[in-house]
């Protein structure tokens, strides 16, 4: 019996071998190498602290963090309300609405950037409308505000889906109980619904935060001079050929996003995937 089990485990290792080899050769080893390259510049391993000590990188880091946090909070607020509403109400045209809300899920960052240009760019809708109404066209696509709009655009469909899936599992009798005890709608929402949705909000918020920190396509489409960390890494690498600094910064960025996701997972329970 014992030998048979060992035999079947060996067979399982054989199944995992191709994927593990691929992963080790093309991700794990290159990543270790990248850590080494990051410490190979003139300042050695101190390069990893440059994010904090160098004014320019610190500014990029702070504006990226602030941008990602704002995007996360705004997205969560909007998507929680809309997701709950969609889960709880039936009305004609709902499935069409759902299809439209989830359509942008598959857009890459570059396309999202282009959508922002369509809305708030030089020939955009907002510009045309404000020009008609106030005689002056409002154009903000090519700045941090445009990036904010893009990341919210990108994140809303994901969070709506997560909220809907979580709201589906809510026990309606809890809310009825709260209501029968005299709680009004707002109290029920704050004390019963929101706590039940919290794990889903934390996990989808973390994914939203991590993508906003590391995404690059949207910023790239809007303007290469937007000062966020991924753009700073890109410029170090291509414009200044400062490979060690680019490596150090991307390791720091990777650590931040990984930590955010890991933290969210431990807060919201192990059933939540690392990223979705």
């Amino acid at each position: 019996m014992k030998t048979r089990r060992r035999g079947s485990n060996r067979h399982l290792w054989f199944c995992a071998a191709p994927a593990m080899t691929l992963f080790a050769a093309f991700w794990l080893l290159p990543m270790l190498r990248l850590v080494g390259v990051g410490a190979s510049g003139p300042s050695g391993a101190m390069a990893y602290l440059a994010v904090l000590s160098n004014r320019h990188y610190l500014d990029s880091l702070v504006s990226t963090l602030l941008l990602s946090l704002t995007v996360t909070l705004v997205t969560l607020a909007i998507a929680a309300v809309v997701g709950l509403f969609l889960q709880r109400n039936r009305f004609p045209g709902k499935s069409l609405l759902m299809a439209m809300l989830t359509f942008p899920l598959a857009f890459p960052g570059v396309v999202v950037g282009f959508m922002v240009i369509m809305l708030a760019g030089r020939q955009g809708l907002i510009g045309a409308l404000t020009d008609k109404l106030f005689g002056q066209s409002l154009v903000f696509a090519y700045s941090l505000a445009g990036l904010f709009l893009g990341y919210v655009y990108f994140s809303i469909p994901r969070v709506i889906l997560t909220v809907m899936a979580a709201a589906e599992k809510l026990d309606p009798s809890l809310e009825e109980a709260a209501r029968s005890l005299g709680a009004n709608g707002l109290r029920v929402f704050a004390d019963v619904v929101l706590p039940a949705l919290t794990p889903a909000l934390i996990s989808s918020g973390a994914i939203c935060f991590a993508t906003s920190m590391g995404a690059f396509g949207t910023a790239f489409t809007l303007a290469t001079k937007i000062d966020v960390l991924p753009m700073a890494i890109y410029n170090e690498f291509t414009s200044y050929a400062n490979f060690s600094m680019a490596a150090a910064l991307s390791i720091v960025l990777g650590l931040i996003t990984w930590l955010a996701l890991a933290l969210a997972r431990s807060l919201s329970g192990s059933s939540v995937p690392a990223a979705a």
């Binding site: 991700w27 990543m31 590391g214 991924p230 680019a246 991307s250 990984w258």
Partner: peptide, 18 residues
């Protein structure tokens, strides 16, 4: 899951360096 959790930029740089 790491290549999804870590920004693509970092993965790409690592591949180029290696």
């Amino acid at each position: 899951m790491m290549p999804v959790a870590v920004p693509g930029l970092a993965t790409a740089l690592a591949l180029i360096m290696a």
